[in-house]
Design a protein around this nucleic acid. Structure first.
Lengths: 199, 199
DNA sequence: GCCCTTTAGTTTCGAAGCGATACTAAACTG
DNA sequence: CAGTTTAGTATCGCTTCGAAACTAAAGGGC
């Protein structure tokens, strides 16, 4: 009983600790933690989501702060913005070549490589648990969930073209595995499909 | 192939995200993230470790910064410091009653309760994986490891009294499950470090 | 068509956190 | 008993972030 509680505390603290130390190795990192997160986010979010507002809600910060972060990345040439045609207020950002080059030096690489060395089964279980924690946490906090289009309840296939019911439009193939701010989790029937391929 | 890499990236980002959103719910939290971490640390570290220096190395920050954080907690009455008799330079901090009361509202509670609801097997596996990640990460970064006395290689039992080979003294029962800055992982089969105990 | 509200994005300002530096005092070294 | 190391503190300046005010575009109702 108290044993359980202590284990949970330990896990929580380790989670925070690992997250914290992974974000920006020391302060001699090329970018700040917020800048890295933004760069990563823009690399992984779909067109209508990689905007200042999208990043603001992803980071649970204000639009003003998010705008500053984006602007700083634009100033050093890592991202470029283009105004949307459908909505002339909206600006969508893309990584430049330099941006991609910088992303290759993401301090998170250390952690990622370390996770890569885990056994496949361990990694999958770990992913399942942390996903659960993340989604439960964010909707307990009232924060919007972020997920990929392919996992979204707005997602549909008619023939061989993907479709987003939320945008009410066709979905480019490249956007299917990307993050979307309008993500709605599909009611899921508990995970199955074990793959017993060990690493 | 690339599937694996993508899973690892996803895990790493979720880790950072969960850590980040758990640390301080918004900014209307009573304390800052650093203050919460300090309070938590002082609640869990043993007498010779819950000092400004101990917290500094735990947080991988400077002693100056750590000192400020501690001072701010002292000013609002959550911790009190007492000078050590053995070393008159050193100050050990304890939580006051108010400090314990505050800790009960730790924003990390949310996450802890959530982890409590996991199945025991899942929780244990999760702990094993994240512990591995945390320790690998910290010694890749050259950061000192923190662990409990009972898991430490300096720990010993002679009869029914616990003993710390590092401090060269008896260990109070209450300190056995606590964090120590002088923690040395017990040699796992394969690790070959210098056993030069003095630092 | 026109007004009113909402939303995307930006700018400015003030507060707070943190790192660097310099300092005091106590403990070790030889 | 000098010289060095270590614990802790105080100060300064930079950076970051949130709050609030603002512009401009879109939507809604009539």
């Amino acid at each position: 009983m108290d044993e359980k509680r202590q284990t949970s505390e330990q896990i929580a603290e380790l989670l925070v600790h690992v997250g914290r130390t992974s974000r920006s190795e020391d302060s001699r990192s090329a970018l700040t933690a917020a800048q890295w997160t933004c760069l990563r986010f823009f690399a992984r979010a779909n067109g209508s989501t990689r905007t200042p507002s999208g990043f603001a809600s992803f980071q649970a910060t204000t639009r003003g702060t998010a705008s500053q972060t984006v602007k700083s990345l634009e100033k050093i040439g890592l991202v470029t913005g283009t105004r949307s045609d459908r909505d002339r207020r909206s600006v969508s950002f893309d990584l430049t070549d330099q941006g991609h080059k910088m992303l290759a030096q993401d301090p998170l690489r250390d952690l990622i490589e370390m996770i890569d060395t885990l056994k496949t089964a361990d990694r999958d279980r770990f992913l399942a648990t942390i996903s659960l924690l993340a989604s439960t946490l964010s909707n307990r906090r009232g924060l919007p969930a972020f997920g990929t289009c392919q996992d979204c309840s707005h997602f549909g296939l008619s023939g061989d073209t993907a479709y987003c019911a939320c945008m009410a439009e066709e979905l480019a193939a490249v956007d299917i595995p990307k993050l979307c701010a309008s993500y709605m989790p599909t009611p899921r029937p508990q995970s199955q499909g074990d793959q017993n391929g060990t690493d």
